[in-house]
Amino acid sequence: MAYAYLFKYIIIGDTGVGKSCLLLQFTDKRFQPVHDLTIGVEFGARMITIDGKQIKLQIWDTAGQESFRSITRSYYRGAAGALLVYDITRRDTFNHLTTWLEDARQHSNSNMVIMLIGNKSDLESRREVKKEEGEAFAREHGLIFMETSAKTASNVEEAFINTAKEIYEKIQEGVFDINNEANGIKIGPQHAASNATLAGNQGGQQAGGGCC
């Protein structure tokens, strides 16, 4: 399907926080309680609409296990957006965020939009990390923040789409050089011709999903 832009996303965070489940919920609208350990990268893709434009999200779900990190971090490059995920029921996954953030910023471009996600919000009774702590961390490091549940699909669409909106706004502001694919943004074939007129084309943003 034709698209105006393609955004490359990465999903990062400790093992077991629900990265693959978030991807599956977003792309397939289903929850799989048992998922194999991710090795390397699992890919997903979905079309969304922002400001009337079709945008393809190309999502790289990376392995969270420490053993694989030295390899998978080399695939961060060229990402326009990142979902940095922790598990609200496991304090250690929150404590490791700084390391993940450093890794992400070191191995990708400085303009990458990062969405901090506190996943498993359905498990309120087992919560170890307060929502306010996530918000404070995000504020301190200039991230967007949401709590999600891949199980109930709560905020999953919003997490992916809001990240795309932020990237789109940066494109409009000229922060991203869309002609440099190292920024994780690829112009769709039918949009390349009208690319020059993009600036100033801001308007109300509507987002909707649709599998590609």
């Binding site: 090795i39 390397g40 990268v41 699992e42 890919f43 893709a45 694989f68 390899i71 998978t72 695939y75």
Partner: peptide, 12 residues
């Protein structure tokens, strides 16, 4: 085709 997985050969 839909690309689904990348497995570093170090891990397979």
């Amino acid at each position: 085709l839909e690309l689904t997985r990348l497995l570093p050969l170090r891990f397979v």
